[in-house]
Structures are given as structure tokens and as C-alpha cells.
């Protein structure tokens, strides 16, 4: 990737650098290479397909779900799934204790989980990368201060810190997401800082500086693109982590509040029926597991494709 830097140097001082992006054919080649390495990992391809299905389900939720996810049907309490005795085709996966269709709730729940992942990753990546870039580029006391603050956040078990933060902010999905983003963000700071420190010494950065690029340009346009690999892998892992932690907070009663069809919250409501109606408990957890597993499979594939240093031999 350092040919980008070399190109910069060739352009010479004072001239406007016209098109820094690699040409289209080159980019297509990169994409093909990426896909080649990614698709070697069969699990990663399966993960991607499953994830695509979940995204489709979330987007098309109103078309797929046969019932309103919060509608209570008093005539159908704890109806078992369709293949069991007493099951009904109108409630594929059965109903919960207040007669809500579990399948419809799961379908809508996909929206919440994906939204949580997306929101948390966007927030923690954007803040974490900026802070990490500054720490790694500026060094000195700024760096020391930032890293100590990150150490402090990492000194707490993440779920405990998120739980306490939500207690301060008040329970709810948005506050849970903010808390989780804060807890996950140090990983991005550390990762960005480490890559920046490694890249900063390279010739292409010196070249960019010689050409007269300012610190912000060097940080954002020259160094950052070359640190992206590990960051994308970490972002994928954080996506699945965020879904798990949000579900855990929901399960503890501190995340999304009932009657929101969030998967963790559904499990919390189902807890007392553990020994009476297994389906109320089983399906929301299965949905969480499948989603998280699919994303982690993608993460493994991305690591193989993007980050040769971390590659599992």
C-alpha cells in the first residue's frame, strides 16, 4: 500500500496532487484479491450469507412478521411452537406469557440488534480512531494522558462499567448503547495508536511531510488508510460484542425496556417460564447466538484477508 506514498513523493513539491486514489482497474484488482483471500475461509462466506439474511429480515420486518410485535393476544397465552402438540400455524414459534407472537418479535428484534451494533461501532470507531491518531502522532504528555484514561476504562469489567453508566444515565436502549460504545472505545484508541506509531517511521510519511503536508492531512490521508486492516477486524468483533453486551444489559433489565422486542429483554421477561415453556427462552437466545456467530465468522475471514500479521496459521 505504500506505493500511494511513493506516488506522492514523485509528484514533487508545490504541485497539486491530482488523483491520489488508485485507478479503477487497480481497485478492482484489490477487491478481487481481497475476495480471493476472504473466500478461502468457507466459514466466513457462510457468515456473510447469514448476516445478509438477517439484514434483509430486519429491513423487511413489517412484510415478514405475521403479527404486530407488541400486540397481546389474551386468547393465545404460551402457545407452543407449530410442530408441538397444541401449536398453531398462526404462531410459528409459539407465543409468550402475554400472548405475543415470538416469531414476529424476533423479526423486529433483528432491527434493534443490528442498530445497536451499527450505532456502537460508529460511535466507538469514530471517537477511538481520532483519539488514537492524536495520541500516536503527537506523543508526549497528550499521549500519556490519553493512554492512562484508557487504562482506567479497561480496569473495569466492561459489563459492570456499562451497567453502572446506565444506572447513572437511566435505563434504556440509547443509554445502553452509549455506555457500551464508551467501554469498547479504548480498543480502537490502542489499536490506532500502535499502528500510527509503527507507520509514522516509514519513508512515505516522511516523504509526505517533505512535500509540505500538514499534520492533519498526514494523520487522516496518509497514515490512516494504511492502518485500516486491523481496525476493520476490530470493528467487526466490536459489532458482535456490542450486540452481546446490549442483550446482556437488556437481560439484566438495564437495556431496552419492555415491551420493546429486543432479544435480551425478551429473555429477561422469559426467565420465570424457564421450566414451563422452553420456547419462550430458547428462540431469542438462538437469534442472538446466530447473529453474533455470523459476525464473528465474518471477522475471522476479514482477519485472514486484511491482516496477514494476525493470520491464523
Amino acid at each position: 500500500m505504500s506505493q500511494i506514498g511513493a506516488q506522492n513523493a514523485e509528484e514533487g513539491i508545490g504541485t497539486d496532487i491530482p488523483d491520489r486514489a488508485p485507478r479503477r482497474s487497480q481497485r478492482r484488482q484489490q477487491l478481487a484479491d481481497f475476495w480471493y483471500y476472504y473466500s478461502v475461509n468457507k466459514g466466513a462466506v457462510v457468515g456473510l450469507v447469514v448476516f445478509a439474511i438477517i439484514v434483509a429480515v430486519a429491513i423487511l420486518a413489517p412484510l415478514i412478521a405475521p403479527h404486530d410485535p407488541v400486540l397481546q393476544d389474551r386468547s393465545a397465552l404460551l402457545v407452543p411452537p407449530v410442530w408441538m402438540e397444541g401449536g398453531s400455524w398462526s404462531f410459528l414459534l409459539g407465543t409468550d406469557a402475554v400472548g405475543r407472537d415470538i416469531f414476529s418479535r424476533l423479526v423486529y428484534g433483528a432491527r434493534f440488534s443490528l442498530f445497536v451494533g451499527l450505532f456502537v461501532v460508529t460511535l466507538s470507531v469514530s471517537t477511538g480512531v481520532v483519539i488514537g491518531l492524536v495520541a500516536g502522532y503527537v506523543r508526549g504528555w497528550v499521549d500519556a494522558l490519553i493512554m492512562r484514561v484508557m487504562d482506567i476504562i479497561l480496569a473495569f469489567p466492561s459489563l459492570l462499567l456499562a451497567l453502572v453508566l446506565v444506572a447513572v444515565l437511566g435505563p434504556g436502549l440509547v443509554n445502553a448503547m452509549i455506555a457500551i460504545a464508551l467501554v469498547l472505545q479504548p480498543h480502537f484508541v490502542r489499536l490506532t495508536r500502535a499502528s500510527v506509531m509503527a507507520e509514522k517511521q516509514r519513508d512515505y510519511v516522511t516523504a509526505a511531510r517533505v512535500v509540505g503536508a500538514g499534520p492533519i492531512r498526514i494523520m487522516a490521508m496518509t497514515i490512516l488508510p494504511n492502518c485500516l486492516g486491523p481496525l476493520i477486524v476490530q470493528a467487526t468483533l466490536s459489532f458482535s460484542n456490542a450486540i452481546l453486551e446490549a442483550a446482556a444489559l437488556g437481560f439484566l433489565g438495564m437495556g431496552a425496556q419492555p415491551p420493546t422486542p429486543e432479544w435480551g429483554t425478551m429473555l429477561a421477561e422469559a426467565r420465570e417460564f424457564v421450566l414451563r415453556a422452553w420456547w419462550v427462552v430458547t428462540f431469542p437466545g438462538l437469534a442472538i447466538l446466530i447473529t453474533v456467530l455470523a459476525i464473528n465468522l465474518i471477522g475471522d475471514g476479514l482477519r485472514d484477508a486484511l491482516d496477514p500479521k494476525l493470520k491464523r496459521s
Binding site: 466459514g43 458482535s240 452481546l244 442483550a247 446482556a248 437481560f251 435480551g264 429473555l267 422469559a270 426467565r271 424457564v274 421450566l275 422452553w278 427462552v281 430458547t282 431469542p284 437466545g285 442472538i288 447466538l289 453474533v292 456467530l293 464473528n296 465468522l297 475471522d300
Partner: peptide, 25 residues
């Protein structure tokens, strides 16, 4: 390795409930 990836992705609060259903219930 497949089992390890499933274990790594496990929502443990749900896993606990499943084990209760099976072994205690």
C-alpha cells in the same frame, strides 16, 4: 474450532437458562 467459535459467540445468560432447562428441568 467450530465449537470454540460457537462458545466464543455464546450469550452466556441464555446458555445458563438452557442448561437449567436441560439439567435441572
Amino acid at each position: 474450532m467450530g465449537a470454540a467459535l460457537v462458545g466464543y459467540s455464546m450469550p452466556i445468560f441464555w446458555w445458563g437458562l438452557l442448561l437449567i432447562i436441560l439439567f435441572s428441568g
